[in-house]
Structure formats: structure tokens, C-alpha cells
Amino acid sequence: MLKRSLAIITILIIGYWLAQSLAGVPFGEDKMLVGQYYLDHVKDQTGAVNAVTAIVVNYRGFDTLGEVTVLFIASTGVGALLWRKRKKRTAKTEGSVVLTTGSELLFPFVVLFGSYIFIHGHLTPGGGFPGGATIATAFLLLYMAFVSYEIPHKAFEKTEGLAGMGYVLVGLTGLAIGGYFLFDWIWQTWQWGTGNIGRLFSGGFIPIIYTLIGIKVGTELSGIIDNMLKEEVRE
């Protein structure tokens, strides 16, 4: 009881303190300094209509590279923590025909929709991370519906690594052509797609990087699901 009331009082004090500091920030006023620059120049500098993806991938590409690395470490960490010599799915109950057939029929659609999200990253809300998570959901669907389903491990791990390397390679190509890492060479040097901003084949290297990220995130999260659903088998 004493512990709980102390905790509530502490949280109230912290909340009041945060509210006090936020009260000084006026709501709804134009406070943009860098933001206005992004909005004014996003189209001619990056070719993307979606300002968020332009900032995340182009202006501040290093952050995204860091995020991809965090996700990779998370996946590796789960793999290392749950590492066992012999692992197997131990689910016992087979789903009914409604569940299994339903997930079989939905699977290609979910994968297609995930690809749609990451291909259109520079035009519509979304991008590589939501698209990849959607693709991983498709595999989760199969894991949940079937007792013995497993992702093709070899292919998945290789694809994941190749996609990650592809991202770095795109950045390194920028370093070679433009002088700094993650320089948008497709847009700035080749001027490819400059004529049709807002259509699919535009946006410099954003669609390419988001495709790589989508594939990487999709395979990675599927790998995490796979690791967590398996249990040790004792002889």
C-alpha cells in the first residue's frame, strides 16, 4: 500500500513537472526553422512527394541506417538468447480447415500489399518498415495456422544479409560519386526521374532503399517469430 501510494505520488510529481515545462511551448504557432526548409525544398532536392520519407531516407539517412542496425541486432540477440541445438515447433492442435485455407488464400495478398507499401514509400504514407512488418505478418499467419510450417531459413538469412549490404552499397556508391555517404546519386547526378515527380519512377534512391529495407525488415521479423515459436526438443 505504502509502496503503491509513493509510486503514484512520484509519478504525479513527474507529470506535473513535465506539464510545466511543456506549458511554455505555444500550440499551433509556426515554430518551424528547419522544417520549413524541408517543406520548401523536398521536391526539387529529393524528388519525393512524401516529405517524411524524404527526411528519413534522404536528409537524415544515417538515422535509418542506425534503425536497420538496431533491428538487426535485436534479431541476432533473440537468435542468440534462444539458441538451442535442436529446435522444433511444438504446437499440438491443427487449425480447422477455415483457418488454414483462409491463411493460404490471404498469404499472397498480404505479401503483395506489403510490397505495395514499400514501393510507394516516396508517394504515400508508409515505407520500408511498415511494408516489411506487413510481410512478416503474412509469415506469422502461416506460423499460426499450420502446426509444422517453417520459413526457408537458408534463403531468408541470405536475403536479409544481402538487403542490408545493398543499403550500405547504395550509400557507398553515393560516397564515390557525390563525395559523402548516402549521397542521392540517382537524383542529383543522373537526374533520373526528374521529369515526373509524383509518379512511381521518381524519388531518387528512396524507392530502392525502401525496397531493400522492406525485404530486410520482412525477413528479419519473420526470423524473430520463428525463433520465438520454437522450443527445445529433448531426446
Binding site: V97, V98, T100, T101, G102, E104, L105
Partner: peptide, 8 residues
């Protein structure tokens, strides 16, 4: 199976 799913 798809038929059974649609019926269900």
C-alpha cells in the same frame, strides 16, 4: 477447401 471456407 476454398469452397468449405467460402461456405463457412
Amino acid at each position: 477447401n476454398p469452397g468449405k471456407l467460402a461456405l463457412a
